[in-house]
Design a binder for these strands. Structure first.
Lengths: 214, 214
DNA sequence: TGTAATGTTTACCAATCGGTCAAATATCCG
DNA sequence: CGGATATTTGACCGATTGGTAAACATTACA
């Protein structure tokens, strides 16, 4: 009789490693496209190319799958903000933060939509992460920004709303991708839209944050 | 035998009027909070305070309910953009567009989340609206903005990405409300956050779009 | 190689899903 | 009033949901 899900052996098998990877990859596909409630285990199983009970051998419940996925993706997702450097040049830090976030929207749209779905529906599974680690990180970086404004390196502004606006403008290109494509039309909806967006956003934020009288 | 759903009488009954209103109000509650697939007719019926078959007497299917809701909300939702006036003062037009969108995020967050859910999940029910009426309206307003840049009233910039950035920054306060509250913490998450956001966004966009050398 | 542990599948379950039906009830109007 | 029409409901349907049980197959390793 197998005691499932790595409870028995401390070391995880090669098969465990591979299958869990496979499942989480499929789960990312499905959860990001349909949200937690809108997704079914069967869909994930089909994408993963295995049977439903086989999925449930590795993850006891649908919730457990979702949780494992969130945990895995969250750290990576906050990396750009973590890289925000107090010692760096403010203009260049903001510029590269925008660029990095935009690259993530382009290269990891599923991860963006996973969180967007979750937050949009009230964040029932990640409330703690938002109020804990996320808030702490943002508080820390907000202090950095505030120091920049105090010393006149960038215009006086609310650092929290600055961060929100960078998040929203960049993630927009992942979360609202279909709308962006629909509005831009076939002629402008190619991959070049990310470069156009980068150009515009850098202009917007650098110009909008330029200290008075410079 | 009743031929249901207003197919029989051309004039709609008072009861029809009221009940359909009641249902759509409840449907907005549920669809906006859980997305189309994540919502159930039973949930809507409970919120509406009537039995499931009664809902289905007024709307044949779950899809029909969703469609009626979208149709009803879409026109209102685009009103602020429609108000964008080519003859007005660019700075003031942009400022008031931001303010109006922010007011809608504050006063009609469910409507915002309804569309966000829909678009996020690939806009399976509103693709035509995006590619048709929405695109046309945006194209029209993009021309207005382009005229402003050509005449030097605002800085040279991509009008489409400008519109996207106003959409995303303002709707963020409705769609990602729980995240905004979590990060701001109890002390700053009061209704004042909308005024702070308005102040920041006006500064950002007005500053960021100020024509070179002025 | 043998065997215990690990991994996979078929068959199934109760609950819930969207939706139907016929009977019961309320409303309208002459 | 009374009958026609409009509205509401409980009981029910087949399909799908998340999840289980147990038989079966494969792997690792002494």
């Amino acid at each position: 009789m197998a005691i499932p899900r790595a409870a028995k052996t401390l070391r995880r098998t090669r098969i465990q490693e591979e299958k869990e990877e496979q499942i989480l990859e499929a789960a990312l596909d499905v959860f990001s496209a349909r949200g937690f409630r809108g997704s079914t285990i069967d869909q994930i199983a089909e994408v993963a190319g295995m049977s439903k009970p086989n999925l449930l051998y590795y993850f006891r419940t649908k919730e457990a799958m979702h949780r494992a996925l969130i945990d895995r993706v969250l750290y990576t997702w906050l990396e750009p903000l973590r890289a925000f450097d107090a010692e760096g040049n403010p203009e260049e830090e903001i510029r590269s933060y925008i660029r990095r976030k935009l690259e993530m929207a382009r290269d990891f749209p599923r991860e963006s939509r996973l969180f967007a779905n979750e937050v949009l529906q009230g964040a029932p599974h990640i409330e703690d992460e938002l109020k804990g680690p996320l808030k702490e990180l943002v508080d820390e970086k907000a202090e950095v920004i505030r120091a920049w404004t105090k010393s006149g390196k960038i215009a006086e502004c609310d650092p929290y709303h600055l961060i929100f606006s960078i998040w929203s403008t960049t993630q927009h290109y992942a979360d609202f991708d279909v709308q962006v494509r629909a509005v831009l039309g076939q002629e402008h909806a190619g991959e070049g839209r990310f470069e156009d967006a980068a150009r515009f956003l850098e202009q917007l934020f650098i110009g909008g944050l330029r200290p008075e009288g410079s």
